[in-house]
Amino acid sequence: MTRTTRLVTLLVAVLLLGAVGTGSVLYAAHRSGMRDQQQADGPTVRPGTVSLRPTAERRLLVRNLAWGPHRDEIATVPADDPQGPRTASGVKCLRFHAAAGTGICLQAVHGALEDTYRAVVLDAHLRERHRFPAAGIPTRARVSPSGHLVAWTVFVSGDSYAGTNFSTRTAIVDTRTWAIDDNLETFRVIKDGRTYHAADTNIWGVTFADDHRFYATLATGGRTYLVRGDLTARTLTTLHRNVECPSLSPDGTRVAYKKRVKGASPDAPWRLYVLNLSTMKETATAESRTIDDQALWADGDTLVYALPGDYGSDLWTVPADGGGTARRLMTSAVAPAYLG
């Protein structure tokens, strides 16, 4: 082989390798772009504008858990097309809820040595209005129907409600004044008609009736209770035993909650129930699996809640009256909120 032939052969090889390399880069970029829109066999997720303002079309907002660059962002879909393409906001939250143009977003702040947490109040454009330090790992969040109050619960110690070795901290903020009750354990507890004091009190899972009244879980003495809270009187009054993570119905007459049932595994102790607040009658829903979530009322008849899924959690629905069957609403999603 002559010197000229060797040079030509080398040049052709270099050009071929360059073409292969360029093709690989372009293919990878194409695949990356596809992943930016859609996880394999999962929902389409695209960046866009997300608003908390009421619209003619009812919408469902969630924390998106689909793998890709928009994982953990608040995303929206039409409420009547929950499996449709998602619009991702760019705002990341661990827990989220919204109502009447106000959002509450619980976030992690990643540090060199450890993570810290914060509660961020959002406006209708998902812009930060105010932030507060959170004392531990976010677990529950709610906004009042008017948007004037927000609440959140964090684990101060422990990371699960299943056992007894945990401590929570629950706060309520008035978004009109930024006044904060940063620990509801300072409220006076009225149990069985009498003021009650105990060092082991824990409170979590606020659900608002209006801008003065709310419901929550109180744990003490190894038992849990549904309590009615009064922000003006700063009281918590026990109503019913064995109630955790209550969620008030839109008409204010019922509470959905998780209840510990006899014979269940200690690691999966709960079933989803509904309590009539007038009669205190309990109704078991058709969901037979354990529920470790604060259910949400999609409307006056249907509950939405999270169960473990392939990418973290999926959202499921079940009728609130005890009939029907549970069905999957959305894959790769958690922390729902309905708007509109």
Rank of each mutant, 00 (worst) to 15 (best):
P319S: 03
T290P: 05
L296M: 13
P319L: 07
K281E: 09
A306H: 09
P308H: 08
T302F: 00
A326E: 01
W316A: 03
A326D: 03
V318H: 04
L296C: 10
D299V: 02
G324W: 06
D292S: 14
V318K: 04
D314H: 11
M280D: 06
W316H: 11
A306G: 09
E282S: 08
P308M: 12
G312R: 03
V318Q: 01
D293M: 13
A306Y: 09
A320L: 07
T302S: 13
R328N: 02
W297S: 02
L315W: 03
V304K: 14
T285V: 02
P319W: 05
E287V: 00
L315M: 05
R289H: 08
T279S: 04
G324C: 02
G323P: 02
G312V: 05
T279M: 01
S288R: 15
L307V: 11
P308L: 04
A284R: 15
G309N: 09
V318P: 01
T290W: 10
A326M: 10
P308C: 10
A284K: 14
T290R: 13
L315A: 00
D293E: 10
V304R: 08
R327W: 06
L296G: 02
P319V: 03
L329N: 01
Y305T: 09
D314V: 05
T302E: 07
L307I: 13
Y311W: 15
G324L: 10
A320Q: 05
S288D: 09
D314Q: 13
W297D: 01
G300T: 02
R328W: 06
P308G: 00
T331P: 02
L307G: 10
M280W: 07
M330A: 09
Y305L: 02
G323C: 06
T302L: 04
S332T: 13
Q294N: 15
Q294T: 03
W316F: 11
I291K: 12
D292R: 13
A284C: 14
M280E: 12
Q294D: 02
A298D: 10
S288G: 13
Y305C: 01
S278P: 15
Y311C: 07
T325C: 11
A320I: 05
D314F: 07
S332P: 01
T325P: 03
D292K: 12
A326F: 03
V304Y: 02
L296S: 11
G312H: 02
Q294W: 07
I291P: 03
D299G: 07
A295I: 01
P308R: 13
T283A: 14
G322L: 04
V304H: 11
D293P: 11
T279L: 08
T325Q: 07
A286S: 15
R328F: 00
V318I: 02
G312A: 00
T285P: 05
R327H: 07
K281L: 14
W316D: 02
M330E: 06
P319I: 06
S278T: 15
A320R: 06
D321F: 01
A306C: 03
L303T: 09
M280G: 04
A286K: 08
S288L: 15
M330L: 05
D310S: 15
A298Q: 11
D293R: 11
A306V: 10
D293H: 12
S332Y: 04
A306D: 05
A295N: 12
A326N: 01
L303K: 13
D321W: 04
Y305N: 04
T317R: 06
D299W: 05
Y305P: 00
G312N: 07
V304L: 13
D301V: 06
D314T: 11
S332H: 11
G323Y: 07
R289N: 15
